[in-house]
């Protein structure tokens, strides 16, 4: 459950920029929410505040009942590690690590035994369709594969909330479809709460709900019809059904 109350964020420079001007909403657990709006509307800023990557100027964020304002820098880092997952716009992976090493890094930070974190991350990599790419270096993976590694890393700690900041921005149509179907599947199968920033209207059809932002304010809260979602799941961004990885074909 995410509860945001009167969230404000101002960037103080020569001219103060009010990126968020009092945003309030609630997201129940297991919901896939798309955040949309034009450039400069505050989408990414909102996601940064929710994912504890930045500190809001004022307002309250409750993540599963935890008031994040009271977290010190170290505790916020620990909270991110244990409870949150973040998928960046660009394939934000560590180039010196191979695919599975990137995926198991959060588990290693959590102090899990090596055997165990390799088992867990291998399973997850298999779920995102990368069981045959475990030991490939990041430079040897395609954009879509890299983004799936990033998703695996974001989920490996069994995060309660997955934040995705334009996860398909740099992907081709085929990989966009793969990543969006994967996110949808995570929500449907695992009950994963997902907040995804996107500026492509077509992508919102994969979500349960869309929060529309404009000039730092929430201007519309839209629910997506189940039929639209189903259609997107089966046909959205699909160029060739046979190109889908096996793990998505059962849908």
């Amino acid at each position: 459950m995410i509860k945001v109350t009167d969230l404000k964020k101002t960037y103080y420079g020569k001219v103060p920029v009010h990126a968020l001007k009092g945003v309030s909403f609630q997201i129940p657990s297991g919901q896939f929410v798309a955040i949309m709006g034009p450039s400069g509307s505050g989408k990414s800023t909102l996601l940064h505040q929710l994912a504890l990557l930045d500190n809001p100027t004022s307002g309250q964020i409750l993540l599963d009942g935890v008031d994040t304002a009271g977290l010190t820098q170290g505790k916020a880092a620990d909270f991110r590690l244990r409870h949150l997952g973040y998928v960046f716009q660009e394939y934000a992976l560590i180039s010196e690590l191979n695919a599975i090493e990137n995926a198991f890094l959060p588990l290693m930070l959590l102090g899990m035994k090596r055997k165990e974190f390799i088992r867990v991350s291998t399973e997850l990599m298999s779920k995102v369709g990368l069981s045959n790419r475990l030991h490939h270096l990041i430079s040897e993976l395609s954009g879509g594969e890299q983004q799936r590694v990033a998703i695996a890393r974001a989920l490996v700690n069994r995060s309660k909330i997955l934040f995705a900041d334009e996860p398909c921005a740099n992907l081709d149509t085929e990989n966009k479809g793969i990543v969006l179907r994967l996110l949808r599947k995570l929500c449907d199968d695992l009950g994963q709460t997902i907040l995804m920033v996107t500026h492509e209207p077509e992508q919102r059809e994969f979500a349960d709900r869309v929060l529309w932002l404009r000039d730092g304010m929430l201007v519309k809260d839209e629910s997506i019809d189940k039929a639209v979602r189903e259609d997107a799941l089966h046909n959205g961004y699909r160029t060739d059904v046979s190109s889908d990885p096996d793990y998505l074909k059962d849908n």
Binding site: A51, L53, G74, A77, D78, F79, R80, L81, R82, L84, Y86, F88, A92, L93, I94, L105, P106, L109, R153, A154
Partner: peptide
């Protein structure tokens, strides 16, 4: 990114 995933 390391910090974002919770690395101290």
């Amino acid at each position: 990114i390391m910090k974002a995933i919770g690395m101290k």
